[in-house]
């Protein structure tokens, strides 16, 4: 059931995920904005605004407050003080950001391997740190090995913080510890996006990469083959226990041509994180009781569940 409406306020609304935005400043029309907000009220949808870097007209700033909302903003937004989520493009300005709200750091894998230590202090500043790789599909065997090592390093810091009584939240390590079933992006199932052209899309990436829209505020939503966005219709994912995986339907389509089928790279990266979470959970529990209701994460002998499916 649909729960969230993401509204891209402009063509250059900050990217908070794997896709790239466009740098033109075209705004979503005020009429489309107002109509979509009316629909959000009718359908009980929680609204998430995605802000561009620049300023918005006063008319927009007034209109968006008609409904309760979450504001996703670039770290250099003139409205950053009002943000509910801050997005950093790379490792710049990390220290000067507003504290106490979730951070998203978008970066390339090589950039991450070089700069990851800069993220460690953030674990005490933000209630939730998310790292999103712009080039996840380019991970290779060497990157997998390096990624595993980097997460082990992170894990030691996170373990120390937990021992100190803190509860840092970091998508690459701790998200999986707290889950006993899939919690993915769910674009097309729980979330839909209104793009600056006034149409609905499965997610921002579908808009920026030229996919067909799936309706508009006037005619309603019309998702073709909607079942394929659901977990039950994903033969690899429905067997998987990397519960924290984004299960990005856009990356799926980009790499395998099917929204319900993940690439080898997405699976292996998620399983390296899963296994790091398993080790971290075990390490924290050596210091005393910790979330006893959470089951142990099982030992497995694969990094890509595709390998376990009989073909």
């Amino acid at each position: 059931m649909l729960q969230y409406l993401v509204i891209l306020l402009a063509e250059d609304s900050v990217s908070f995920c794997h896709y790239e935005n466009r740098n033109t400043g075209n705004l979503l029309s005020i009429n489309a904005l107002k109509e979509s907000l009316r629909i959000s009220m009718l359908e009980n949808l929680s609204v998430q605004y995605v802000f561009p870097e620049g300023e918005l007209p006063a008319e927009y700033l007034a209109a968006i407050e008609v409904v309760e909302n979450v504001k996703i903003m670039p770290s250099n937004s003139p409205y950053a003080e009002k943000a509910n989520v801050l997005v950093f493009n790379g490792f710049f300005n990390l220290k000067s950001a507003k504290s106490g709200i979730p951070y998203v750091v978008r970066c390339g894998k090589d950039e991450f391997f070089t700069n990851y230590e800069k993220l460690i202090p953030l674990l005490e500043v933000t209630p939730h740190l998310s790292v999103v790789f712009k080039d996840l599909v380019k991970f290779n065997e060497n990157d997998f090995a390096q990624y595993k090592t980097v997460l082990e390093t992170f894990s030691k810091h996170v373990e120390e913080l937990y021992v100190d009584g803190k509860s840092p939240q970091f998508n690459l390590l701790t998200d999986r510890m707290y889950l006993d079933k899939m919690r993915n992006c769910e674009a097309g199932v729980k979330t839909i996006t209104l793009a600056p052209d006034g149409n609905f899309y499965i997610c921002p990436a579908f808009y920026y990469n030229g996919e067909m829209p799936c309706g508009n505020p006037n005619d309603g939503l019309d998702i073709k083959n909607p079942q394929l966005y659901k977990l039950e219709y994903a033969p690899i994912c429905r067997r998987c226990d990397a519960f924290h995986c984004r299960r990005c339907v856009w990356l799926n389509k980009l790499t395998t041509l099917e929204v319900n089928t993940p690439s080898h790279e997405q699976c292996v990266v998620s399983h390296i994180e899963r296994n790091a979470a398993k080790s971290l959970l075990a390490a924290i529990r050596k210091h005393g009781e910790f979330m006893p209701q959470l089951p142990e994460i099982a030992e497995i002998d694969y990094l890509d569940p595709f390998d376990k499916i009989e073909k």
Partner: peptide, 13 residues
Amino acid sequence: NKLRPFLTLDRLT
């Protein structure tokens, strides 16, 4: 990667 959907396709799905 482009073979994965074909090799995991089943009747039910």
